Simulated assay, not measured.
Amino acid sequence: MHIDLTGRTALVSASTAGIGFAIAKGLASAGAHTIINGRSEASVVESLDVLREAVPNADVRGIAGDVSTAEGVAKLTHVVPSVDILVNNAGIYGPEPFFDVSDDTWERFFQTNIMSGVRLARHYLRGMMERNNGRVVFISSESVLNIPTDMIHYGMTKTAQLSIARGLAKLAAGTAVTVNAVLPGPTLSEGVKAMLEEAASKEGKRIDEVAVEFVRTHRASSILQRPATVEEVANLVVYVCSPQASATTGAALRVDGGVVDSIV
């Protein structure tokens, strides 16, 4: 299968590193004019340099802006008023006991993980429907089904993304616009590597070894029995953004390595 996104403009929020960067790289490799987004100008510039080196002649640009705020989204949409592909990747996570999670933390997770995608979709989806063409993807998590007791605040936001994606897909019914959610499982992103670095150093092991042990201990239902790579997650997202995925909409698509113990 050859995915050709030439002539399409794609925006990936929070895409200077991790899964977001891998998605941006995949879309650029498929020929899309790809827009990288990050909070700081420095991180955007650095990521663009890495992307251009990895994908020679890539048609890419970067826009700094914090999409967890209405002001950041307004800045971004002013510079980029229209896109054909929107990947809502912005998200934060972090374990914290439920009884210690403050209102401010709940609000921060809500604004970053939920409202960033709501605001961007509210701006871009209308144009897609008018043009009768487009793709919207929310990067959710297997935590929507396996709510982690040490990250209930996170699991809530990921579940909300599924509701929003499904509702928007129904809103776009009868058009050639699709809206889907992708649910990664344990993924060896930069953020996860940073979390595991201390344990790896203490145990004298490589981070990838500690990551495998983490999955087998804390996600024992995993069929893959290892974390996914960011590229493996990005591959599914690029497909969902392609013309070949035209009959897939309103779906929650798992790339969780079989962590969720379900046949559907």
Rank of each mutant, 00 (worst) to 15 (best):
Tyr93Ser: 15
Tyr93Gly: 15
Thr157Ser: 15
Val101Met: 04
Ala160Val: 14
Asn133His: 08
Asp104Lys: 10
Phe138Lys: 00
Gly127Gln: 11
His123Ile: 03
Asn146His: 12
Val101Trp: 02
Val101Gln: 02
Glu107Asn: 10
Thr159Val: 11
Gly134Glu: 08
Thr157Val: 10
Arg131Glu: 14
Met151Gln: 14
Arg126His: 07
Asn133Ile: 01
Gln161Trp: 06
His153Asn: 12
Glu130Asp: 14
Lys158Pro: 12
Ile164Gly: 06
Met151Val: 05
Asn89Lys: 08
Asp103Tyr: 04
Asp103Arg: 05
Gly155Asn: 04
Leu120Gly: 01
Ile114Leu: 12
Ile164Val: 10
Val118Ser: 02
Leu168His: 00
Arg126Thr: 07
Tyr154Ile: 02
Ala160Tyr: 01
Gln161Lys: 13
Asp103Ser: 10
Val118Pro: 01
Gln111Cys: 10
Trp106Glu: 06
Ile164His: 04
Tyr154Lys: 04
Leu168Met: 07
Asn146Tyr: 08
Ser141Leu: 11
Gly155Arg: 13
Glu96Leu: 03
Ile152Asp: 06
Thr105Glu: 08
Val136Phe: 03
Met115Leu: 14
Gly134Ser: 07
Val87Lys: 10
Gly94Tyr: 11
Glu96Lys: 03
Leu145Thr: 07
Asn89Ser: 12
Met151Lys: 14
Asn146Glu: 13
Asp150Ile: 04
Val137Gly: 00
His123Cys: 02
His123Met: 02
Leu145Asn: 12
Thr149Leu: 12
Arg126Ile: 06
Ser116Tyr: 03
Ser116Glu: 02
Gln111Asn: 14
Glu142Phe: 08
Phe138Thr: 00
Ala160Pro: 10
Gly91Cys: 10
Thr112Val: 14
Ile152His: 09
Ile139Trp: 00
Phe109Glu: 12
Met115Thr: 03
His123Lys: 01
Ile164Phe: 09
Arg166Ile: 12
Asn146Met: 13
Gln111Phe: 06
Met128His: 06
Gly117Cys: 02
Val144Tyr: 14
Val144Asp: 01
Leu145Trp: 06
Asn89Phe: 08
Asn132Arg: 11
Ile139Tyr: 00
Arg108Ser: 14
Ile114Thr: 10
Met151Asn: 09
Ser140Asp: 11
Tyr124Val: 04
Leu125Phe: 02
Ala165Gly: 14
Ile147Gly: 00
Ala121Gln: 01
Leu162Arg: 00
Arg166Gln: 14
Val87Tyr: 10
Leu162Lys: 00
Lys158Thr: 05
Glu142Trp: 00
Arg131Ala: 15
